[in-house]
C-alpha cells in the first residue's frame, strides 16, 4: 500500500517536471519568435535593462570590490608560501574573469532581479492580469516575457564586466596598497597571464547566465497556476519565487561547470 502510494507520487512528480520543461521550452520559443516580429518593443526592453542592469549596479560594485579583496588576500597567502607573489595579479584576474565574475554577478542578479521578476509575473497571473492581456489580444510572451529575457542577455554580461574590473581594483588595493607589492608587477603579470580565451569564456558564461536567470524566473511565475500544490495567492507566489531562486542558482552553478568543461 505504502509502496504504491510512493510510486504514484514519484510518477506525479516526474510528469510535473516533464510538463514544466515542455512549458518552459514553449515559453522561450514564443518569446523569441515574438521578438523577431516588428514593431519592436524598445521602450519595454529599455525599462527592463534599467531594472535588471542599472539598478543592480550598486550591489555589483560592492560585491565585486570585496570579492577581489578576498581573492587577493587568499592568493597572497598561498603564493607567498611558494615564493611567487609576482603572480598575484594574474591569479586574481583569471579567477575573476573565468569563474567568480560571471557566477557572483549571476547570483546577485538572481537575488535582486530574478526573484522580483518571478514574483511580479506570478502576481500578474493570480490577479488575472495575464488573462487580461490575452483578452486584449496582446501577446503576453511578446509583451511581458521577451523584454525581460532580452534585457537579461544584455545586462548580465555588462554587469559581469563591471564586476571583473572592480574586483581587479579590489585585488590591487589588497596586493599593492596593503601588502606593498609593486603596482607594475600586479598589472604586468595580469597582461601576461590573461588571454583572449579566458575573456571569451567569461563572456559566454555571462550570456548563458543572463538567459538562464530570466528564463527560469519568468517560467516559474508565468506557469504558477500549473503548480502541483495549487499555488494560490500570496503563499503561492512566495513559494514559487523561492523555487525560482533556488532553481536558477543551481542552474547557474551547473552551467558554470558545463561551460568550463566544454571550453577548457
Amino acid at each position: 500500500m505504502f509502496v504504491v502510494k510512493w510510486l504514484g507520487r514519484l510518477g506525479d512528480q516526474f510528469l510535473y517536471i516533464t510538463e514544466q520543461i515542455g512549458r518552459s521550452a514553449m515559453l522561450l520559443f514564443y518569446a523569441l519568435t515574438g521578438i523577431a516580429k516588428p514593431p519592436y518593443k524598445l521602450h519595454l526592453i529599455t525599462r527592463q535593462i534599467l531594472f535588471i542592469g542599472a539598478r543592480s549596479l550598486f550591489v555589483i560594485l560592492v560585491a565585486g570590490f570585496f570579492t577581489g579583496m578576498v581573492l587577493a588576500l587568499q592568493f597572497y597567502n598561498t603564493l607567498e608560501r611558494f615564493g611567487s607573489i609576482d603572480l598575484l595579479g594574474s591569479a586574481t584576474a583569471l579567477a575573476l574573469v573565468r569563474e567568480l565574475g560571471p557566477v557572483m554577478t549571476a547570483l546577485m542578479v538572481i537575488g535582486r532581479a530574478g526573484s522580483a521578476m518571478c514574483a511580479e509575473i506570478g502576481i500578474m497571473r493570480t490577479s488575472e492580469q495575464i488573462d487580461a492581456l490575452e483578452c486584449m489580444a496582446i501577446d503576453p510572451y511578446r509583451y511581458l516575457i521577451a523584454p525581460k529575457i532580452i534585457a537579461g542577455i544584455i545586462s548580465v554580461p555588462l554587469l559581469t564586466s563591471v564586476f571583473d574590473v572592480i574586483g581587479i581594483l579590489g585585488g590591487y588595493v589588497v596586493g599593492v596598497v596593503v601588502f606593498g607589492l609593486s603596482s607594475g608587477a600586479y598589472f604586468d603579470s595580469m597582461y601576461a597571464g590573461v588571454e583572449w580565451n579566458d575573456i571569451m569564456m567569461g563572456l559566454n558564461k555571462s550570456l548563458l547566465f543572463g538567459l538562464t536567470i530570466t528564463w527560469v524566473s519568468t517560467t516559474m511565475g508565468f506557469f504558477l497556476h500549473y503548480d502541483r500544490k495549487g499555488a494560490y495567492g500570496a503563499e503561492g507566489v512566495s513559494r514559487i519565487t523561492t523555487n525560482a531562486v533556488v532553481l536558477s542558482s543551481i542552474a547557474i552553478l551547473f552551467g558554470d561547470y558545463l561551460v568550463g568543461a566544454v571550453m577548457l
Binding site: 490577479s127 488575472e128 488573462d131 490575452e134 483578452c135 486584449m136 489580444a137
Partner: peptide, 14 residues
Amino acid sequence: RRQMGVAFQGGALF
C-alpha cells in the same frame, strides 16, 4: 479579441 472587451472581477489593471 479586438472586437471583445473584458472587465475582470478584480479589475486586472497593470
